[in-house]
Write a protein that binds this DNA or RNA. Sequence first.
DNA 1: GAGATAGTTAGCAGTATGGCTAAGCATGAT
DNA 2: ATCATGCTTAGCCATACTGCTAACTATCTC
Lengths: 113, 113
Amino acid sequence: MAKHDTDLSLLFHALADPTRRSILTQLAEQPARVTDLAGPTGLRLPTVMRHLSVLEEAGLIATAKDGRVRTCAIVLEAMEPVRTWIDEQRSIWEARLDRLDAFVMDVMKERGS
Amino acid sequence: MAKHDTDLSLLFHALADPTRRSILTQLAEQPARVTDLAGPTGLRLPTVMRHLSVLEEAGLIATAKDGRVRTCAIVLEAMEPVRTWIDEQRSIWEARLDRLDAFVMDVMKERGS
DNA sequence: GAGATAGTTAGCAGTATGGCTAAGCATGAT
DNA sequence: ATCATGCTTAGCCATACTGCTAACTATCTC
């Protein structure tokens, strides 16, 4: 279980919550303040804060505080490992198909045609 | 929050656990029995069963029982919604860039050049 | 400086998660 | 019929998650 693995767990876990996904979608439109993010969710500020810190720890958002206002922005590249992992599964799967093909070939060859 | 949303939550949640991901990787190689899946994890059977049911409810694996042996297989297509959702975020983000471009254009036009 | 605004921290409650053991089926082999 | 195998269920434990309120800090704005 490499750190790589931990990262994936953090990412997937962060993305597993509908509230957090809707926050991300909102941030994909444009950066926003904490209060602006809380509005649409109907949740209290501390609750939203918690979601934001989960997202930030996963690297999915970046935040900066200017005066008393914290601005949040999406970090799209952060989702890349997710895509990569899925692609890896697919290539393992495809390799399996290749092996099955090879196996079938062998069987046919053994049969003499 | 559509059903679509629930599906995504189930998917992401299922993928958020390293044990479940390693089970999926093993199944990408080839289908396996429950006991075969338990081996590499070092976990007890009931624990593995629970992971398997999470994976199955998310649609990520399919299982069938033949005699006393249950065989599990990966369902690669099940990951498609994940990829789709990520792509959607990216296109929202790209649309945002377009809007910013348009905004800059407008400002320049207003200035007379 | 008083008061509004924006965020933060601390801590509680209910539920879910991830591990286990113990015990209970079936099914296959002898 | 008996025993081993493979899975399944029930239920316990510790921890983590998601929501909340209450109280606190820090920054504008008058």
